[in-house]
Design a protein around this nucleic acid. Structure first.
Lengths: 132, 132
DNA sequence: ATTAGAATTAGAATAATTCTAAAAATTAAT
DNA sequence: ATTAATTTTTAGAATTATTCTAATTCTAAT
């Protein structure tokens, strides 16, 4: 594993958020390492193929990268916000229903986050007022 | 709902595969409807927001669209192939662990498909041979 | 030190999607 | 039916994310 790959893996493992390739690139530049975007992409692909990181793709957003410690994601259907949540491991339940070996699974749970719920409530209220 | 939206929804609901926006556009053209790509994208966004279709994003691939009948997906980690699989509904199990209401969930199970397994076996064999 | 192979680079190229502003179609009001 | 208002569609430009390319730099073994 190259130095850059190690740095990138470290950033992903230490981050609490779900970074995009772009964000990782910027973080590396901040830490005054000179690195090209292509290198970030290269290494991310590499790390992903080796199963050292995972990719989470939320529609309308660039791919995001995450550590491989088992956890699931809550996705707000309004604003696209991603939050971590650790639910009971489902591997056994799933594997019992599938004959081929499961490598891993990605579970995204769609909901509406509090901010958007609040927003919705306010909007609705305003509409109601307007219609009088 | 506009005529185009209806057509697009129909195509998605009737398709057994997981179509991209591009593929939907081409299908519509085949059925000699004149339609612009932008219209396909517009309507897909619309249908998605209304919860009438779902989007499945597999890394390295353009977004794909699917019907909302509950089912899960098997994703081959080597070639990216997507297959449908209907596993036991997990909503109750998940909801019991989450306080906010779940709208829906997307479950992608990573595995290696038969073709890729075969491929791997062959490659390995060749490597072995070569190394002599 | 020399060299082969791998990693990195900057920038071009590509692919998917969104934006824009005008045109066409649909709907509602007269 | 005619006009006006609104919605949908359109073609093409613009943007964004990502990959490709070919040259350069680094690394590690001789």
């Amino acid at each position: 594993m190259t130095k850059n790959a190690r740095y990138i893996l470290e950033i992903i493992n230490e981050s609490k958020s779900h970074l995009t390739a772009e964000q990782i690139y910027l973080l590396l530049k901040e830490k005054n390492r000179t690195i090209a975007q292509a290198t970030v992409y290269n290494n991310l692909s590499c790390l992903y193929q080796q199963g050292l990181i995972r990719k989470i793709s939320v529609e309308g957003q660039p791919d995001r990268y995450d550590n491989v410690i088992r956890h699931d994601h809550l996705i707000c259907r309004k604003c696209g916000k991603i939050s971590d949540i650790t639910l009971k491991d489902l591997t056994a339940i799933l594997q019992s229903q599938i004959s081929v070996p499961i490598l891993s699974y990605d579970l995204k749970i769609n909901y509406i986050c509090n901010t958007c719920l609040e927003q919705e409530r306010t909007d609705h209220h305003e509409n109601t007022k307007k219609s009088f």
